[in-house]
Design a protein around this nucleic acid. Structure first.
Lengths: 330, 330
DNA sequence: GTGAAAGCGCTAACAG
DNA sequence: CTGTTAGCGCTTTCAC
């Protein structure tokens, strides 16, 4: 059942059917009604390969995720979806598992015109390649823009967030503050570490690289971080973690050590995922406006979809520090 | 840059280029080499809309997920990916958010030939519609087959898993065993509840529906379940949860109540996600062979991709009960 | 307001 | 082994 069959049944030309499908106003109302009725009756769906071939677009966008093992992305995806739907785009999600070959394979979908654009949440490609990519295809980065790349992006102010938290700790009398960071998401890690460092220095405290433990983002990386930090001569009394998973690992290790988290020592996470309020102690965290991040990311992409020569925008959205039992802040 | 341009540069016909692209053996080695060189040099990529239009297939499969907010799926996806790659298929993931309209929208991709087949992890559609769908398109269900639908599927033996666990509890002296189940994933819930019930009855214990609390799968549903269970005259001394998230909610609520989980009361979860070994107490759970589930799901789909008339298979994979601190089993 | 016809890029018969 | 050609299903000029 294709457009030709429908034309035959309707007794019109295929052009008319096509016009009806595409809401072309110059079709007689009577004709339109008849055609619409037949389409409905037959359950005809325009073949997209034909349409794509002709129009050179797919009305699909690709969302590229580094991993699925992170609660964090699900709400963002809903934000993207809400805007994409309005604009008539379908979403395809692909997972790179942090592997450059996989990433390239999926990015290839842009070149092959399988998708019209892409929102990426992490790239292993260097910034020159990202700049190049963004020049040629509608492409935006969310949460983790490549440092130095000329590309549209949306993020929260990672540096300021940690700066704020660190300042709060200091105001509350903490002199030795540790950080458990990562060694993968270069952008956010760099910003957050910078916020930490600046807060210390501005408050006249020493910055010591040993107080920043870096690893991956698994629970055990959090617990490893704690082990290293607690071995320091001046063990920290507060620990800032760059993700909730690290905070969980850190807290469970501290509990093993017999510490009462929230009293003996404060710990804060990042992302404010739902586990934070069900762990014990409940975990303080820095919330990102996930739905809005998704919506803004799509808006940026939409600009590019209309005209890929449009200038690149860098959008910064607000964060929110949420204190729970794991931090003792007045 | 299309196949015609390449043909011109190579001084051959488009047919030869097409043959080279598609590894047709009847091309002279010298010709092949020349063409390959030019393709590489120019960075030519065959246009997939053209190819899809012509071949009536897309070499893409759709993976339909109810939600992304679940660690459980990430490893399964890797299993699917590994097999799909071998077979030359790309994977697209879509999330329905448990909404039938969304589900239909994505399933539409089958009709529109955007994808050649689909692996679905949850369907709100009734089983007649699923049967119909599977008759017309390569379609398989993983983990949550529609009850009564004629469709290929792969699952673990949900009933036996819970039956085993429940039996163990009974052998260890537990007389009042509670269950926190869900009210959404009909298939697995029904099986697991049946396993629970049978174990009780076979051991001469009373089955009482009040001991099964049903809700959704959020942490708070676990804690709500516990609240209800602990109000019963004969409060349970062991609780079986149908997911790790429910177990987490349950345990944190029990801790609030002053109970020592693993001593005063045993709790077990399902899926063996990584949080289980980082919670305190560490959480016992039932492990599903997630990677294998993914691989088998793709194998089933592959059969259908080759010939959609091939008979529907129901595959059952083994589970594994993992005891940690939250259960006290000798 | 409608139709005829070209052509998007590719593959697969068929002929040689 | 290679080329010619038809046509996949659709949109879009260009006529009328």
């Amino acid at each position: 059942m294709n457009i030709k069959d429908i034309a035959k049944i309707c007794g019109t030309s295929v052009a008319t059917i096509s016009r009806v499908i595409n809401n072309d106003p110059k079709v007689a109302d009577s004709t339109r009604k008849k055609v619409l009725a037949i389409i409905k009756e037959t359950g005809f769906v325009p073949n997209s390969a034909g349409r794509n071939l002709r129009t050179q677009k797919s009305n699909k966008i690709l969302v590229l995720l580094p991993t699925m093992a992170n609660q964090f992305y699900s709400r963002i995806l809903q934000g993207i979806e809400s805007k994409a739907e309005e604009a008539g785009y379908n979403i395809l999600v692909a997972v790179t598992n942090l592997d450059e070959a996989q990433e390239l394979k999926y990015l290839e979908m842009l070149r092959m015109k399988h998708v019209d654009g892409c929102i990426s949440f992490f790239n292993t490609l260097n910034s020159e390649k990202i700049t190049e990519l963004a020049k040629n295809y509608p492409f935006v980065q969310c949460c983790e823009p490549s440092i130095g790349a000329d590309v549209s992006s949306v993020v929260v102010d990672n540096k300021q967030a940690i700066y704020d938290v660190c300042n709060e700790f200091i105001k509350n009398g903490h002199k030795n503050i540790g950080m458990i960071s990562g060694d993968y998401y270069k952008f956010s890690e760099e910003k957050r570490e910078k916020g930490y460092k600046e807060a210390l220095i501005e408050n006249g405290l020493d910055f010591n690289q040993d107080y920043i433990q870096k690893g991956f983002y698994r629970y055990k990386d959090g617990s490893n971080g704690v082990k290293a930090l607690m071995k320091l001569k001046e063990a920290p009394t507060a620990i800032i973690c760059v993700s909730d998973s690290l905070a969980i690992g850190a807290i469970s290790e501290l509990k093993n050590m017999g510490k009462t988290v929230g009293k003996d020592i404060s710990v804060i996470g990042f992302d404010n995922t739902s586990i934070t309020s069900h762990f014990s102690p409940t975990i303080s965290s820095i919330a990102q406006p996930r739905y809005d991040l998704g919506q803004e990311a799509f808006n940026l992409l939409h600009d590019k979809l209309q005209n890929n020569e449009s200038s690149n925008k860098k959008i910064i959205l607000p964060y929110r520090v949420v204190h729970r039992e794991s931090t003792n802040i007045k």
